[in-house]
Design a protein around this nucleic acid. Structure first.
Lengths: 114, 114
DNA sequence: AATATATACCTTGACAGACGAAGTATCTAT
DNA sequence: ATAGATACTTCGTCTGTCAAGGTATATATT
């Protein structure tokens, strides 16, 4: 993996919520989706993923239930709550602001005083 | 301050280096520049700023010297080294990649399979 | 039958960066 | 005198990440 995770840090929850906006999903599937979307440039480490689920659930952004798999390993599915959807929109908006801010801050140009 | 610092985390060093690309500077001035550039939407906390200086100096990206102020508080100036300039370019490039990646990851759209 | 690989989840402990809080010191304005 | 701006420093805490370990089921290979 090439991208420093400190650059993604702080986006973990947003990324998870984004994956739950369309449909319920579970850890393994979400992580596979991330790898696909980024063409293997990024993946969430399992420990990071599952601790983020805990945080999101404690905060009321998501709810979980066990899937009824009759075969294969059991899956814990997550649903995004109303609060979670609002939270997601807020996080997305913050990202837009942060993006502009960082772009501004790493530009090695003089500020235009007049 | 409005922006979650976890979103800026990982950019502290890049931001400092960007400020040193044009001219030598010191902590207080760099922080003022950041506040100006972002119209007070962001500032580095002192402890964050000064520990970042230590890291950058230990890594050989910057060097420091005491200013020869005859008045006012003493200032520790920092110069960016050749390695620091290269480091900065690398960090900037990483940011471009991370930006695209994050945008992709927080989009609540289905991946287009065909 | 044994082994490897993929699927799927979980916990513990360590680490690194951010930061609140506190301190030191100089100069200017009230 | 006092407050506020300038300027730097150190200590201790918190939070998110992650390496390392574990559990369990199903399929493919040897």
């Amino acid at each position: 993996m090439s991208i420093a995770s400190d650059l993604i840090r702080g986006h973990t929850e947003t990324i998870i919520l984004a994956n739950l906006m369309l449909k319920d999903s579970y850890g393994y599937e979400i992580n596979k989706a991330i790898q696909q979307k980024t063409e293997n440039q990024y993946e969430l480490k399992e420990a990071t993923l599952y601790t983020a689920f805990r945080r999101l659930e404690d905060a009321g952004s998501i709810n979980s239930y066990w899937g009824d798999e009759t075969t294969g390993a059991r899956r814990r599915y997550y649903t995004i709550s109303k609060a979670g959807r609002e939270n997601f929109q807020r996080l997305k908006a913050e990202w837009q602001i942060a993006k502009t801010l960082i772009d501004k801050l790493i530009t090695e140009e003089e500020i235009n005083h007049e």
